[in-house]
Design a protein around this nucleic acid. Sequence first.
DNA 1: TTTAAGTTGAAAGGTTATTGAAAGTTTTGA
DNA 2: TCAAAACTTTCAATAACCTTTCAACTTAAA
Lengths: 224, 224
Amino acid sequence: MNILLIEDDEVLADGLTHTLSNSGYHVTGATTAAYAEHLLKAQGFDLIILDLGLPDMGGLQLLRRLRSQKYSLPIMILTAHDDMNDRIEGISQGADDYMTKPFELRELEARLHALIRRCYGGFSHIIEIGGLQLDTSNQQILAKGELLSLSAREFAVLEILMMQNDKVISKDKIAKHLSLHGDALADNAIEVYIHRIRKRIKPYGVGIRTFRGLGYLLENKVDE
Amino acid sequence: MNILLIEDDEVLADGLTHTLSNSGYHVTGATTAAYAEHLLKAQGFDLIILDLGLPDMGGLQLLRRLRSQKYSLPIMILTAHDDMNDRIEGISQGADDYMTKPFELRELEARLHALIRRCYGGFSHIIEIGGLQLDTSNQQILAKGELLSLSAREFAVLEILMMQNDKVISKDKIAKHLSLHGDALADNAIEVYIHRIRKRIKPYGVGIRTFRGLGYLLENKVDE
DNA sequence: TTTAAGTTGAAAGGTTATTGAAAGTTTTGA
DNA sequence: TCAAAACTTTCAATAACCTTTCAACTTAAA
């Protein structure tokens, strides 16, 4: 799970990054709206935490732009208490949530989990396909109850396939989800990971179907 | 879904292209009216986004020419706020829609979806014929709930037949829909694809009817 | 610090599905 | 009945994908 944290307060950013990393999320920080936008184009994120009180006031503009460019990923907004009044009403709609500063990290994390659940997992924080379970709050994949030990990259690939359930995921999307510095990954590398994951998940009745020229789809191979 | 974007502002064009590509559309850009017209002759588009404020003021002329010729495809018009007054009234009729700059991409996209729906589909983003469902937002075709695995070309042919529902589609149109670089495709190749698709969709109670000398029509074969 | 073990992705070769031309057959309508 | 149009099958070239191997790199252990 890749989180983009757009926050100029270094202390707060550090704390958040530390906390969320501990929960297994991968956090990328941006201190300005401009840089955040740059990152968004280059990489694949699953969630954004956006502080509206950026120095250049680009926060709100960025938010509007994000909303408009059907980046359909969930956005958690942070805002100072006295700025909040009329803004929030218009802002907090759809899948988003917001918190007013100061807040407790604990609560933020709980709300983040809820947000992720709503957007990706339906009811629960566990996304289940066949014998596999993606635990979105602990960032683990369980196979029949046992923890599946995957490398970081393998995990990331399987994760995006599980999160975007029932959708064909292109190699391009996978590459963006993996590459954390915009340096594209050759198609072949993706194929290698698909191959490795296939070997790993085969025993659990889950398979990856190829859509030639389009991408890959995770599917349950045993009838329920 | 092929969209022709006629826009000279590079930044705006980039943003639009990026957004729409993410939604699964295929966007081709043109910065002048003349080039746009050239593209229109060579390729098959399903929708045009036209900025009237082109530098040479060819936008309006192009629009008139499109109207007078029987390009019946929907046109989304972009116009600067102060240019809009008396012009738009005469312009926005039929299947078209327009937006005044500045606008939010999000709203534009929503309107685009609405336009596409109005012109090609019913209410939802799923166009349904017999047992087949074209999911325009995920670019997938479902047959009785199952994802139909078609090759890229087969998908494109079936897509245009489903989108132009209840209309006879000529081979020429299909060829243009496929070839995104003007290199024509022999009639026979189309026939081959029609043949392949017929075999694929037969089990789902959907057929392709031939109109000799005119083209093909997708139809539901089971009475409802 | 050194060693060991695991991870990563480029390279290369093998495999399979897709594509569209070719050519023969069938259908259609004048 | 005849020619044009459409249907169908076959097939070689190609593009996409799979698989294995290996060297560089990272991380963990000794």
